[in-house]
């Protein structure tokens, strides 16, 4: 039983990270209708920028995370301006290929600048605490707590502020949003900024537990795709719920099925979903 609850907690941690990544991905999909394959590279860049800010510039962990969110957010905006904006009228095939180009470029870039080695990120929150007989590090609590706070903030931002409402309006209908005077360019840039910061935050939170390396984004991005298909492409609550579902099934699967193949669980879920419902769960009809 104790093992079970411990695994649930692990699932909660992993699920928080997945949800943050999937949120960024689903926001971009909602606005531009492109599956941003380069999102995993943003995640990876987030990990590296935080690490560099901590080790090279000597910033404390919290500040380094903020710097990294800003930097990767800007990188997202650049991506939108330089690549996805010029491709807005191109066939959908082109966006995807361009995204893969960016992904591989950023990966090679990280390898060029920081090397291919696996690096550990120090954290001031490495202490172990035990609550009700369960042991977990403070870092894990931090992940769960900050993910929940960010999700609430994001929700308030989207529902209560004008910019948030314009993002939702554009996701619902791009031309309609344009007609009522929303600057769709600005909103698209804003969305990429948010999406990049969320990826950087997720990476900075997860890195002390995992490691920082050029390929760290691969599995995460693939799983984020699984999540947004699970939760409905472009749906924000769907991304959160999907993230936690995947986190739980992975940590339980790793314990009770096989640790080696735990990464396949996500893809197995995806294959099953798309086999039964080719347009994803909760697909809007006549999209």
């Amino acid at each position: 039983m104790e093992l079970f609850i411990q695994q649930l907690l692990n699932g909660l941690t992993v699920g928080s990270v997945y949800s943050l990544v999937a949120l960024g991905l689903t926001l971009v999909y909602g606005i531009l209708h492109i599956p941003n394959f380069a999102h995993g590279a943003l995640y990876m860049m987030g990990g590296y920028v935080t690490l560099t800010a901590m080790t090279k510039a000597g910033l404390p962990y919290g500040l380094a995370v903020v710097v990294s969110m800003a930097a990767v957010g800007m990188l997202g905006v650049l991506m939108e301006r330089l690549v996805f904006y010029p491709l807005r009228d191109a066939p959908p095939l082109h966006d995807k290929i361009a995204a893969i180009g960016i992904l591989l470029f950023l990966e090679a870039f990280a390898q060029f600048v920081w090397g291919a080695d696996y690096q550990t990120m120090p954290t001031p929150y490495g202490d172990v605490v035990s609550i009700f007989g369960l042991t977990l590090t403070i870092q894990r609590i931090l992940i769960i707590a900050s993910a929940v706070i960010i999700m609430i903030l994001l929700y308030l931002f989207l529902k209560k502020t004008f910019i948030g409402a314009s993002i939702i309006a554009m996701a619902q209908n791009r031309e309609g949003a344009n007609l009522v005077g929303i600057n769709t360019n600005k909103v698209a840039m804003m969305t990429f900024l948010l999406s990049g910061s969320l990826a950087a935050l997720a990476a900075s939170l997860a890195s002390p537990i995992n490691l920082v390396f050029p390929g760290m984004g691969h599995l995460v991005i693939l799983k984020a795709f699984v999540i947004i298909i699970l939760g409905g492409m472009g749906s924000i609550p769907g991304a959160i719920v999907g993230g936690y579902i995947l986190g739980f099934s992975e940590s339980l699967g790793a314990t009770y099925v096989s640790n080696d193949y735990k990464d396949i669980i996500a893809f197995a879920i995806l294959v099953i979903i798309l086999t039964v419902k080719p347009n994803g769960l909760f697909a809007k009809e006549g999209h």
Partner: peptide, 28 residues
Amino acid sequence: LVALRTKEHFFAIYTLCVGYIIYLVIDK
């Protein structure tokens, strides 16, 4: 037979995952 029920983005994501499963199986 299964993948082609999906379209556009879903197809790309689906096949990306299939490719990754093949990679993982070979690797593991």
